[in-house]
Write a protein that binds this DNA or RNA. Structure first.
Length: 119
DNA sequence: TTGTTGACTCCCG
DNA sequence: CCGGGAGCCAACA
Protein backbone atom coordinates (compact mmCIF):
# COMPACT_ATOMS: atom_id res chain seq x y z
CA UNK A 1 0.00 0.00 0.00
CA UNK A 2 0.97 3.58 -0.31
CA UNK A 3 2.96 4.46 2.80
CA UNK A 4 0.72 6.37 5.23
CA UNK A 5 3.58 8.82 5.58
CA UNK A 6 3.41 9.91 1.95
CA UNK A 7 -0.33 9.98 1.39
CA UNK A 8 -2.67 12.62 2.70
CA UNK A 9 -5.00 12.06 5.62
CA UNK A 10 -7.93 11.63 3.27
CA UNK A 11 -6.34 8.81 1.30
CA UNK A 12 -5.16 7.27 4.56
CA UNK A 13 -8.66 7.48 5.99
CA UNK A 14 -10.01 5.74 2.90
CA UNK A 15 -7.73 2.78 3.58
CA UNK A 16 -8.83 2.77 7.20
CA UNK A 17 -12.52 2.53 6.29
CA UNK A 18 -11.99 -0.08 3.58
CA UNK A 19 -9.97 -2.13 6.06
CA UNK A 20 -13.00 -2.02 8.34
CA UNK A 21 -15.15 -3.73 5.70
CA UNK A 22 -15.72 -7.37 6.73
CA UNK A 23 -15.31 -10.29 4.28
CA UNK A 24 -18.31 -11.19 2.15
CA UNK A 25 -19.46 -7.61 2.34
CA UNK A 26 -19.12 -4.68 -0.08
CA UNK A 27 -19.34 -0.91 -0.01
CA UNK A 28 -19.73 1.78 -2.66
CA UNK A 29 -17.22 4.55 -3.28
CA UNK A 30 -19.86 7.04 -2.24
CA UNK A 31 -20.50 5.11 0.97
CA UNK A 32 -16.82 5.07 1.90
CA UNK A 33 -16.58 8.76 1.11
CA UNK A 34 -19.68 9.41 3.19
CA UNK A 35 -18.17 7.53 6.13
CA UNK A 36 -15.21 9.89 5.84
CA UNK A 37 -17.54 12.86 5.92
CA UNK A 38 -17.14 13.56 2.16
CA UNK A 39 -20.25 12.14 0.41
CA UNK A 40 -19.00 13.85 -2.76
CA UNK A 41 -15.47 12.46 -2.57
CA UNK A 42 -16.34 9.19 -4.29
CA UNK A 43 -13.71 10.09 -6.86
CA UNK A 44 -11.15 10.61 -4.14
CA UNK A 45 -11.96 7.16 -2.77
CA UNK A 46 -11.48 5.60 -6.18
CA UNK A 47 -8.22 7.47 -6.54
CA UNK A 48 -6.97 6.16 -3.17
CA UNK A 49 -7.82 2.58 -4.10
CA UNK A 50 -6.27 3.03 -7.53
CA UNK A 51 -3.12 4.24 -5.79
CA UNK A 52 -2.80 0.90 -4.01
CA UNK A 53 0.26 -1.09 -5.14
CA UNK A 54 -1.42 -4.49 -5.19
CA UNK A 55 0.19 -5.88 -2.06
CA UNK A 56 -1.71 -3.99 0.59
CA UNK A 57 -3.60 -4.56 3.83
CA UNK A 58 -6.54 -2.86 2.18
CA UNK A 59 -9.36 -5.07 0.81
CA UNK A 60 -9.94 -2.71 -2.13
CA UNK A 61 -12.00 -5.40 -3.88
CA UNK A 62 -14.76 -4.85 -1.29
CA UNK A 63 -15.48 -1.49 -2.88
CA UNK A 64 -17.71 -1.17 -5.94
CA UNK A 65 -19.74 1.54 -7.62
CA UNK A 66 -23.25 2.58 -6.61
CA UNK A 67 -24.69 -0.10 -8.93
CA UNK A 68 -22.73 -2.90 -7.31
CA UNK A 69 -20.63 -3.13 -10.45
CA UNK A 70 -16.85 -3.25 -10.78
CA UNK A 71 -15.64 0.09 -12.00
CA UNK A 72 -11.98 -0.83 -12.46
CA UNK A 73 -10.54 0.18 -15.82
CA UNK A 74 -8.22 -2.74 -16.53
CA UNK A 75 -9.75 -6.13 -17.43
CA UNK A 76 -7.26 -7.76 -15.09
CA UNK A 77 -8.48 -5.69 -12.16
CA UNK A 78 -12.10 -6.48 -12.97
CA UNK A 79 -11.45 -10.22 -13.11
CA UNK A 80 -9.35 -10.04 -9.97
CA UNK A 81 -11.90 -8.13 -7.92
CA UNK A 82 -14.65 -10.41 -9.19
CA UNK A 83 -12.65 -13.49 -8.19
CA UNK A 84 -11.75 -12.11 -4.77
CA UNK A 85 -15.37 -11.23 -4.02
CA UNK A 86 -16.57 -14.66 -5.16
CA UNK A 87 -13.90 -16.13 -2.92
CA UNK A 88 -15.58 -14.40 0.02
CA UNK A 89 -19.04 -15.63 -0.87
CA UNK A 90 -20.21 -12.58 -2.80
CA UNK A 91 -22.30 -13.51 -5.83
CA UNK A 92 -22.83 -11.63 -9.08
CA UNK A 93 -25.87 -11.00 -11.20
CA UNK A 94 -26.15 -12.00 -14.86
CA UNK A 95 -24.90 -8.49 -15.60
CA UNK A 96 -21.83 -8.85 -13.36
CA UNK A 97 -23.61 -6.88 -10.67
CA UNK A 98 -23.84 -7.39 -6.89
CA UNK A 99 -27.03 -7.12 -4.86
CA UNK A 100 -26.06 -4.26 -2.61
CA UNK A 101 -29.34 -5.04 -0.84
CA UNK A 102 -27.67 -8.24 0.41
CA UNK A 103 -23.94 -7.63 0.43
CA UNK A 104 -23.82 -3.94 1.25
CA UNK A 105 -21.99 -3.59 4.56
CA UNK A 106 -23.84 -1.81 7.35
CA UNK A 107 -21.40 -0.23 9.86
CA UNK A 108 -22.71 -1.31 13.24
CA UNK A 109 -24.55 -4.42 12.13
CA UNK A 110 -21.25 -5.83 10.88
CA UNK A 111 -22.05 -9.30 12.18
CA UNK A 112 -25.12 -9.74 10.02
CA UNK A 113 -24.25 -12.40 7.42
CA UNK A 114 -27.00 -11.63 4.92
CA UNK A 115 -30.20 -9.64 4.76
CA UNK A 116 -32.99 -12.02 3.77
CA UNK A 117 -36.31 -11.06 2.24
CA UNK A 118 -35.11 -8.82 -0.58
CA UNK A 119 -38.61 -7.53 -0.88
C1' DT B 1 -2.51 28.68 -9.88
C1' DT B 2 -4.16 26.44 -14.01
C1' DG B 3 -5.13 22.39 -16.78
C1' DT B 4 -5.80 17.42 -17.05
C1' DT B 5 -7.03 12.70 -15.57
C1' DG B 6 -9.66 8.93 -13.08
C1' DA B 7 -11.44 2.25 -9.68
C1' DC B 8 -17.60 8.38 -8.86
C1' DT B 9 -22.37 10.07 -8.69
C1' DC B 10 -26.49 12.71 -10.16
C1' DC B 11 -29.38 14.74 -13.84
C1' DC B 12 -31.53 15.09 -18.51
C1' DG B 13 -33.24 13.19 -23.07
C1' DC C 1 -30.29 0.65 -21.55
C1' DC C 2 -27.36 4.26 -23.84
C1' DG C 3 -25.20 8.93 -24.64
C1' DG C 4 -24.09 13.61 -23.12
C1' DG C 5 -23.44 17.18 -19.54
C1' DA C 6 -22.42 18.90 -14.72
C1' DG C 7 -20.52 18.67 -9.87
C1' DC C 8 -17.28 16.89 -6.70
C1' DC C 9 -12.61 15.34 -4.86
C1' DA C 10 -7.48 14.12 -4.92
C1' DA C 11 -2.96 14.01 -7.31
C1' DC C 12 0.31 15.34 -10.88
C1' DA C 13 2.65 18.29 -14.74
Amino acid sequence: MADPAVVSDFTNRVYDVVRSIPPGRVLSYGDVAALLGRPRAARGVGWALAALPGKSDVPWWRVVNRNGEISIGTPHGRALQRALLRNEGVSFDAGSRIDLRRFRWCPGAGDVPVASDPG
